[in-house]
Nucleic acid binder design. Structure first.
Lengths: 207, 207, 207, 207
DNA sequence: AATGAATGAGCCTTCATTCAT
DNA sequence: GATGAATGAAGGCTCATTCAT
């Protein structure tokens, strides 16, 4: 799979990957144009389809490529030895912010990719999403000291509430960034807000 | 506005509305085909554009139509006299489930419509969304007895966490329903799960 | 022919005629929209086709109507008793300028109508043009004292040169008027220029 | 610009150019159908737009192509060393007749193109026309011996009358040719008529 | 490997005209 | 007489994919 592509000079690989990521992130799967991609990557139309057989395969390849790029670094830095749940989550948020600063295009692409509604890719994307969550939920929560949480409520549900809270926060931040054209993410401010929610959740959900 | 359309025999109106809702809900704004709509509605191409001068107007009409259909009934049944926040939310969830059972297509369409990214309709949809939230957030929270909430954390943030929790629950339920083709929403089961989260949130966020 | 139309109340007749003239003059035969005409005239679509059976018949009717309106007055004022060719032509130019000031829309419409290239009406318009020229060339030149022209050249050709000169002048004036949006016809100035050409032609073509 | 098109085999280029010229000349810009053009040229819909991104670009290309084809040859043969105005004009008429015999379609197309009223191309066509006249009016009249013209009238106006006369003659000849389907231009006869007008104008406008 | 010409179904929209009421 | 709903062909243009070179 993709062996043809991997045998190409790395510099050209990069040109193609960057051009494709940019186009897909900007316009979504359906509206993204292979024409634009080859123009930006400065390769011929035929070559793209020589490497990737069709638009869908190209997209799916990019998703894997980007996910791996980011996930690898994420798990490398992830504080598996931190037993306090909130400290762990805080660290996780910080790592994500760092990554999104370092690889803004890749980050944006992945983010959009999993929200893309295009019928052609939906089944595959949902399958990927399921696999990833299955795998990671366990990893991320492993070794946490859950004894700090209050006993009078279902722990699993509390964890869900916390996870959802942070997902929604990040969604809102993203939406704001998209709506206001000039709006650059203010990581400092985001971090502070995250911290405030942490405090609340800790206050209410810890013993 | 839309007077031409409203003078048509109701049966034909329905055929058109249903065909259009179905097509837009299934494929999203951009990919939805007016060709498919007229075929399904069994009218001529020209007639659709006689009623709605273009694809965009048709879509915007449907959004208004669907929103009104649902919102009217929702606010009619909404327990504005209930002062307990969680009772109110519980009631709200039940009403929504009823409505989504009664008007599954309309419900689905509206849901997707506000998440549609198509450039052509984005500005209008965002305006609508802003208007609706401005109006409704106040309505729904009016008259609630907030004194029951614990005083040691920011009330606004707690309310956000609770809202987010229910939004995410509903999203998950929806996703499940979409993934498993034969899967019908089991409203009884959903209600029970909602109830469990209510208990947790009440336990943790009330004094 | 057109009996249905002539039995309508004159006020409605006017509304239709004016609306149609305006639309055709503005956009030419092909691009003119019957939809716009009925909207402007405030009648129903069907009624227009009840009176005129199709777009072409409507157009041809208007040509006849406008031509008659203008021609009648033109020939009434035409100085058939003036025997000097140039005086006669000068008078003719003045009458035309008066008419074009009084009936600007009608004048403009007729002018454009005979230059319209639309395939659907070309044959009829050319036939009309031929009939009119056949008829009028004789009328207009009747009773002129041709003895004043020099004898060493073919009289018919001289007359052609003179006619062409004035046609081209009027074309140029029209083109200028169309190109410069705010440009109103300056009849005084046009008249002066005409006068200068008259002098030259008289000097060169009279004995 | 148009590089894609120029790399095609000449035979196919010709097919496309001829099909397009024919369609535009026959129906004018607005009514000309790209569908007809591709059908006649026996190429696919997409290919036409691969070469010329637009109907408009195609048209503008044809105008340039046709103008160049004709103008180059015209100016090559133009007798710039002839100082007598009428001899020069006579020569010019002959060259034009030769060209219109050799490239009848191209000639016709160019002629119609500059009279086309279609809003989409008007600005460009007027710009082209202005550029061409600016350039050519000077060229064509350069080096003429104007001392032969009579002194008692304005020279500029005389030149206008002469130019107009020949333009109108050519228009009339063209109209005749269009009206009578089988009518082939009889260049011998036209030349004779031109000659007669020359004699008259020389007699009247030279000293 | 690499090119880019070539395909053709599909897109939304307009329009003169007809016809049941 | 008067209405305007209904038709459907035709318009220009886009796009992922194929294939001869």
């Amino acid at each position: 799979m993709y062996t043809k592509f991997f045998n190409v000079e790395p510099e050209k690989q990069d040109r193609i990957i960057n051009a494709a990521i940019k186009e897909f992130a900007q316009k979504g799967y359906d509206k993204a144009s292979t024409n634009e991609i080859v123009k930006e990557a400065e390769i011929s139309k035929g070559l793209l389809f020589h490497y990737f057989k069709n638009k869908k395969q190209l997209f799916l390849f990019l998703v894997d490529y980007c996910y791996e790029t980011i996930a690898e670094e994420f798990y490398q830095k992830f504080p598996f030895d931190e037993v306090d749940f909130f400290n762990r989550m805080r660290q996780s948020v910080i790592i994500k912010m760092e990554l999104s600063e370092r690889y803004p295009d890749i980050f944006k692409f992945i983010q959009e990719a999993f929200m893309d509604d295009a019928a052609e890719i939906k089944p595959e994307m949902e399958k990927k999403l399921r696999e990833m969550t299955d795998l990671n939920v366990n990893k991320i929560y492993e070794g946490v000291d859950y004894s700090k949480f209050r006993d009078d409520v279902d722990l699993q549900k509390i964890l869900k509430i916390i996870t959802w809270t942070f997902e929604k926060m990040s969604d809102e931040e993203l939406t704001k960034a998209k709506l206001i054209p000039g709006h650059e993410m203010d990581y400092k401010k985001i971090y502070n807000e995250v911290e405030e929610y942490f405090e609340i959740l800790k206050t209410c959900f810890y013993k």
